[in-house]
Simulated assay, not measured.
Amino acid sequence: MHINKTTIKVRYVETDKMGIVHHSNYYAWFELGRGEFITESGITYRDIEEKGVMLPVLESSCKYIMGAKYEDEVIIETWIEEMNGAKIIFNYNVVRKEDKKLLAKGSTTHAFVGENFKIINIKKKKPEMWEKLQKLYTDKYYSI
């Protein structure tokens, strides 16, 4: 399985009064990691939408383990946990770069839907898109 590693530096605006990253920002980081992951398949989110496919979030979760702070460099690790023709589940780890501490872990579940927001089987409707994502899901060259 392929794992994308996206590095960011925590901005002041992302912290709360306690000086710790506000919990809502982790979902924005998951989205950033997911977008970078998809780009590595050779397509972008924009490409996917322009081809009439959208990926609405059906479910999301985040377990907060340790708080990130202003100016920490964090790595968002993103990979596909599960994928079939109708849905895709991404998993995420947020790791502080300096000491490799796991700060949070989460997941998002998405449906493949058409422009009418009805679930589609991407494997049948958009086989070229399926192939690109499938390669990252099953590629044994990469490992955790």
Rank of each mutant, 00 (worst) to 15 (best):
M1L: 11
M1I: 06
H2L: 12
N4A: 12
K5V: 07
V10A: 05
R11G: 04
V13T: 10
V13H: 11
E14W: 05
K17P: 02
K17D: 04
I20N: 09
H22K: 05
S24V: 12
S24W: 02
Y26R: 08
Y26G: 10
Y27E: 01
Y27H: 10
A28S: 13
W29R: 07
L32N: 11
G33T: 06
G33Q: 07
G35S: 15
T39G: 00
E40K: 13
E40F: 00
S41E: 01
G42Q: 07
G42F: 07
G42I: 04
G42M: 03
I43H: 01
T44A: 03
T44W: 03
Y45R: 04
R46T: 12
R46S: 10
D47G: 00
D47N: 12
D47S: 01
D47V: 01
E49V: 05
E50Q: 14
V53R: 06
L55T: 15
P56W: 09
L58V: 13
S61L: 02
C62R: 04
C62L: 05
K63P: 02
K63T: 14
I65D: 12
M66I: 07
G67F: 12
A68E: 06
K69S: 15
K69G: 10
I75E: 15
T78F: 10
T78K: 11
I80N: 08
E82D: 15
M83N: 10
A86V: 13
A86I: 13
I88T: 08
I88V: 15
F90T: 06
N91W: 02
N91D: 14
Y92T: 05
Y92K: 04
N93C: 00
R96A: 02
R96D: 04
R96V: 02
K97V: 09
E98Y: 01
L103S: 05
L103E: 02
T108Y: 02
T109I: 11
H110M: 11
H110K: 06
H110D: 12
F112I: 04
F117R: 10
F117V: 01
I119E: 02
I119M: 11
I120L: 09
N121E: 02
N121T: 03
N121G: 02
N121C: 00
I122K: 01
K125A: 11
P127Y: 12
P127H: 10
E131Q: 15
E131G: 03
K132R: 15
K132S: 09
Q134K: 15
Q134V: 09
K135G: 03
T138M: 13
T138C: 01
D139E: 04
D139H: 00
K140T: 12
Y141V: 00
